[in-house]
């Protein structure tokens, strides 16, 4: 794959947010980071986790991601980097990987104290899009896309809910972990990416440069990051 925005030196690396690149919505997150002027980098090997300001674990299938993070030791590298101060954000499957408890199943990275229930809405017919105002993230309504989404059922001490919908929590955070059960990367909303970049101590383009919902985005925008065929 053509790796874009690869930081060239150590100093730059500390201003970079990595996106776990094993399966799922990797290009979508890289596209959003680029929109707010933040360096993004695909993370495929344990060494790639070193010196990142933050890491995004994207949407995808959590069972697949859980298997792949075990094989080459990326899971352990993420835990080590987290212990050294790296921030992490998980969307959908990423949130499942980060949870201390996955209801009825085994848990994985266990970096945020919460109970999460996989595929909690039903089949693809129950996937939906909506909007919500999440004051901590943006004063404006943000587009939310739920695809076979999980539900956060309980949060522990040191974890706060940023959005409660009916009987579940959709957004939660601790001092260094952010989780969303929906996919900001599948919408024009860049407010979460900006919020996470600031949480990581970075300075993204502000609201006067890129609106919280970027009008220049469309659902094919991720394709600019897709690899060029080798044949």
């Amino acid at each position: 794959m053509v790796v874009r925005n690869l930081p060239e030196n150590h100093e730059q690396a500390q201003e970079t947010i990595g996106v776990l690149d094993l399966q799922g919505s990797v290009f979508e997150h890289l596209d959003h980071l680029k929109r707010i002027g933040i360096l993004g980098r695909p993370v495929k090997m344990p060494g790639d986790v070193l010196n990142l300001a933050g890491l995004i674990i994207p949407g995808g299938e959590s069972t697949c991601l859980a298997r792949l993070i075990d094989i080459f030791g990326i899971g352990d590298a993420v835990k080590t980097a987290f212990a050294r101060g790296m921030n992490i954000w998980g969307t959908c499957a990423g949130a499942i990987l980060l949870a201390s408890n996955v209801i009825g199943e085994s848990s994985h990275l266990r970096l945020i104290d919460m109970d999460i229930e996989r595929n909690s809405f039903g089949s693809q017919l129950d996937s939906f899009a909506s909007t919500a105002v999440i004051p901590r993230i943006s004063p404006y309504p943000l587009p939310l896309t739920f695809i076979r989404a999980p539900k956060i059922r309980r949060i522990g001490q040191g974890v706060i809910s940023l959005l409660q919908i009916e009987d579940y929590i959709a957004v939660a955070e601790s001092s260094r972990v952010l989780v969303t059960v929906f996919h900001p990367e599948l919408t024009g909303g860049v407010a979460f990416h900006r919020y996470f970049a600031r949480k990581c101590g970075l300075v993204p383009l502000d609201e006067s440069r890129v609106a919280d919902t970027d009008p220049a985005w469309n659902r094919n925008s991720w394709m600019r990051f897709a690899p060029v065929p080798q044949g």
């Binding site: 690149d21 094993l22 399966q23 799922g24 919505s25 990797v26 290009f27 979508e28 949407g59 995808g60 299938e61 697949c64 959908c92 499957a93 693809q124 996937s127 896309t145 695809i147 076979r148 996919h183 599948l186 659902r219 991720w222």
Partner: peptide, 9 residues
Amino acid sequence: QLAQMLKGG
């Protein structure tokens, strides 16, 4: 978008 979530799988 569900198909997008399956990418790389």
